[in-house]
Structures are given as C-alpha cells and as structure tokens.
C-alpha cells in the first residue's frame, strides 16, 4: 500500500504537470461548450440553450477521448526508459496498473468537476440538485475509459496501429450520441444504431436525471461503467506483459 500510494503520488504529479493532459481535459471542454453553444444559440429558446446542451454532452465525450491519453500514459514509462526500473524493483504489475489508472481517473475527474461547476455557474445549468450523481457518473466513466485505454496501452501488442485510429471510433460514438449535434429519429432501427454508442446512454441518463428527474438510468449506466472498468482493469493486469511494458523502442512511439 505505501508503494502504491507513493507511485500514485508521483503519477498524479506527472499528470498535473503535463500541459497537454490538463489542456485537453480542462480547456478543451470549456472551449467546445462555449463555441458550440454560441454556434447553436439561434436554434434554441431561452429556457434551455445550446450552452446547456453542450455542457452535458461534451464532458462524457471528452472523458471518452481520455482513453487515448490513458493509453499513452500506459506507455509513458517505456518511452522514458523508466519502465525497467519499475520492473526490477519490488513492485507488482497490479500496482503499476493501478497507479496509472487511479492517477488518470483522479486528475481527469478533478478537471470534470472544475469544468462542470464553472460552466454551470456561468450558463446557469440547473444541475445543482444532480451535481453529485452526475459527477459520480462521469468519474466512473473516466475510470472505465482509462481502464480500457490502459488495457490498450499496456496489454495490446499492436499498440502502434491502435493508437493512431483510436480517436476515430470515439468520434463516431460521439456523433451517434449527439455530442456535436442532437441526432434524433423515430425509426426504431436507426434508434438502435444510435444506442450502440455507450455515450448515447451516458448522455441520456444525465438528461433524464437533470431534466426529467428520473434517476434510474443514471445508476444503471454507472453500474455498467463500473463493471466495464473493473473488467478492463483485471484484463490490463492479466495481459500486462513485462517485455511489452519495458519496450520503449517501439518504432514511432512517442509521448
């Protein structure tokens, strides 16, 4: 436990110092919320505005994109050549995975809290009654996406191929979930396609909680995300390969 907490402390320190990591999880969502909110300001009325909509949908999307940064965080030690040091020290692979996972989850969740509270204050999103459940869902989503990202970064042999195209399915999932523009349909088949994106469920559960006061989907979604996160954490530990983890000379790998 002291070793894990020590590793976690240094990992958090590195995440906080990483300008790109913070910029992407703090500045980017705010910019997108205000840009897209402004872009759609003429489409909405006064009671519910585009700013409200994008505050809710942009955070889950940015959290999903954090899968990429988590995958890179998994490879960070290999790139810096410090992976070898961790491997020959009395540190278990579970400690390595958990330190990375928790550091990413904690820092991104803090960024989410800051974005959600500042956006809510500025644009008066009526979220205060649901603030804690929404943040909890986003934190669990962060945990799940980081676990998947780490599984990719630590456990997959063809990381080089995956890392380049990871943003494509995430963006596609974002489009289907209405992260860029609400996509509605009354066609049952198309509705099924839209619900293939996990982001659709997350966005829907937040809207239901905040605007329809229906909490059940949010808790179910959070439960499923938690299960997915735990499964992928287990997989990341199980498929953790010492040789791959210390392999910092991957052609084309960079932090």
């Amino acid at each position: 436990m002291p070793i894990l907490s020590r590793m976690l402390y240094y990992d958090i320190k590195r995440r906080v110092k990483d300008g790109f990591f913070i910029g992407y999880n703090l500045i980017f969502p705010l910019v997108m919320i205000f840009l897209l909110g402004y872009l759609t300001s003429e489409s909405y009325g006064t009671e519910f505005t585009g700013y409200h909509y994008y505050t809710v949908v942009m955070l889950p999307f940015c959290v999903a994109m954090a899968m990429i940064t988590a995958a890179y965080a998994g490879k960070e030690d290999a790139y810096r050549k410090t992976a070898l040091r961790l491997l020959f020290s009395p540190v278990t692979k579970a400690q390595i995975v958990l330190a990375k996972l928790l550091s990413c989850t904690i820092v991104i969740s803090l960024c989410n809290i800051m974005v959600l509270s500042s956006a809510s204050l500025i644009i008066r999103l009526p979220i205060w009654g649901a603030f804690f459940p929404v943040i909890l869902l986003l934190t669990i989503e962060t945990f799940a996406t980081c676990a998947i990202g780490l599984f990719i970064g630590l456990g997959m042999k063809n990381f080089i191929i995956v890392k380049n195209i990871l943003n494509i399915p995430i963006c596609a999932g974002g489009i289907l979930a209405g992260s860029f523009y609400p996509i509605g349909t009354l066609n049952p088949k198309l509705n099924t396609v839209l619900h293939l994106s996990p982001l659709t469920w997350i966005n829907k559960s937040i809207f239901l909680y905040v605007f329809d006061h229906a909490p059940s989907l949010l808790w179910k979604t959070a439960g499923i995300c938690l299960a997915v996160g735990i499964i992928f954490t287990g997989l990341a530990v199980k498929f953790f390969k010492r040789e791959e983890y210390s392999h910092g000379d991957l052609p084309g790998f960079d932090q």
Binding site: K13, R14, K17, K81, T82, A83, L84, R85, F88, G248
Partner: peptide, 17 residues
C-alpha cells in the same frame, strides 16, 4: 528484488521531475 539494484544501459530517469 529488495536486495538487487540495476543500473540500466538506457538512462532511466524522469526528466521532468
């Protein structure tokens, strides 16, 4: 593992701390 130490050929340090 506590009894051994390794100086790797590659410089294995964090450059930003």
């Amino acid at each position: 593992k506590k009894a051994i130490g390794v100086v790797p050929q590659e410089i294995a340090i964090y450059e930003d701390i």
